[in-house]
Design a protein around this nucleic acid. Structure first.
Lengths: 212, 212
DNA sequence: TTGCACTCCTGCAATTTTGCAGTTGTGAAA
DNA sequence: TTTCACAACTGCAAAATTGCAGGAGTGCAA
């Protein structure tokens, strides 16, 4: 079997996917109000109680939203001493990918966002969680960095709090991210689109380098 | 959903059936030695550890054997004051049915018993468990019965222990059962065959009534 | 308005599954 | 013969699932 994930992790992913798929299907067929937790759980082959072990509410199941996760390998690769905006963008991108299900259900989600635009707000709240997570990471890494400790006396960072500097960096990266997302997609869900973002970001980074 | 069994019980039954089916299939394809617990568990979609939550050894999984169970409804219907041999036989029959999987895998089991006759011994051990369970039931019911308490002074039971009387009754019923099983089947597995036994038993009961 | 049914959601204890470490027996290679 | 890998099986603690009882909000009918 696939050694990448343990049996436990694989089953967890399967259950999650089954619940999401069932919820999304119900939403498309019967409308959002027609989504009944009990039926969705039945369709996924688990109890209604288990549904709430995976999603805090119906809407998140329909959209396939999860709390953001920071991939340890990504954290390892993160270089606080390198190209800051690039590094943070890459980090944020990787975390962003984790709040929504894989490509299998991308089609379903796209149609749902189309039918129920107000649900986009729910996804926005998860993006805020992503920012918080990235911010915390950048803040701690920056605080421990040579870049911060040995910043020259004429650095524009002088006289500022580490927290404020980290906050501003993340916000800047985030703003660009949102700009790209707005421009590039109507429904930013699939991994393919995320990859497109990677390249668009490279481009943008060069453009903004002149502005910042 | 089917309200007969809870979700928990349904899943337990499914897992049991999946393990048994996988084990039986492997045995038929690769031979008995070819049955590998890890592979069987994989095929059934559970961990190897879970396998041993369901079966104490490979062989029982291959044969689909479980500990005998006394159906409460059957116990309710049991009438210690009635036709003793008939009642006990009926009870034993119902318990016998519980030590082996349903009709779905009967075909598989039949071929396995054919290929590996020495496994019949394992089933025999379960039949002994059935006898023990039935014996315990009959013993306690008889001890509390009017039939026993108020047995006439000239009853052949006089001067004997309740335990010994119960034991003898169960042994007699069991012997007949084995006789019928020997005669009727080469591979006593399917429910259909069990039903045939029902009738054969009725017949036998009438015949033996003359002998006892 | 009140009562009632229904659905979403939570807390908690019981049951089940899993991972892991370890013991035992067996056969095959050294 | 010894050694060594390997499969069967067990004990135990962590994690997941379930059933159940119950709180809160909402709509609907009397």
């Amino acid at each position: 079997m696939s050694q990448l994930l343990s049996l436990r992790d694989r089953k967890r992913a399967e259950t999650w996917a089954a619940l999401h798929a069932a919820a999304a299907r119900r939403a498309l067929e019967d409308g959002l109000e027609g989504v009944n937790v009990e039926l969705v759980a039945d369709e996924a082959g688990v109890s209604a109680r288990t549904f709430f072990n995976y999603f805090p509410c119906k809407e998140d199941a329909v959209l396939g939203l999860t709390d953001p996760v920071l991939d340890p390998a990504m954290l390892e690769a993160f270089d606080i001493e390198g190209d800051l905006l690039g590094e943070v963008s890459r980090l944020m991108l990787s975390v962003l990918r984790t709040i929504q299900g894989g490509d299998d259900s991308a089609e379903l989600r796209a149609r749902i966002y189309e039918s129920y635009p107000h649900l986009r707000h729910r996804r926005y709240q998860y993006i805020l969680k992503v920012e918080q997570l990235v911010l915390e990471t950048v803040r701690s890494q920056l605080a421990d960095s040579r870049r911060w400790r040995e910043r020259p006396a004429d650095s524009p960072w002088q006289g500022h709090d580490v927290d404020d500097v980290a906050f501003t960096i993340v916000l800047t990266a985030s703003t660009r991210m949102r700009y790209v997302m707005q421009k590039t997609w109507s429904t930013p869900t699939s991994t393919a689109q995320f990859n497109a973002l990677d390249q668009g970001l490279e481009l943008l980074r060069d453009v903004f380098k002149e502005l910042l």
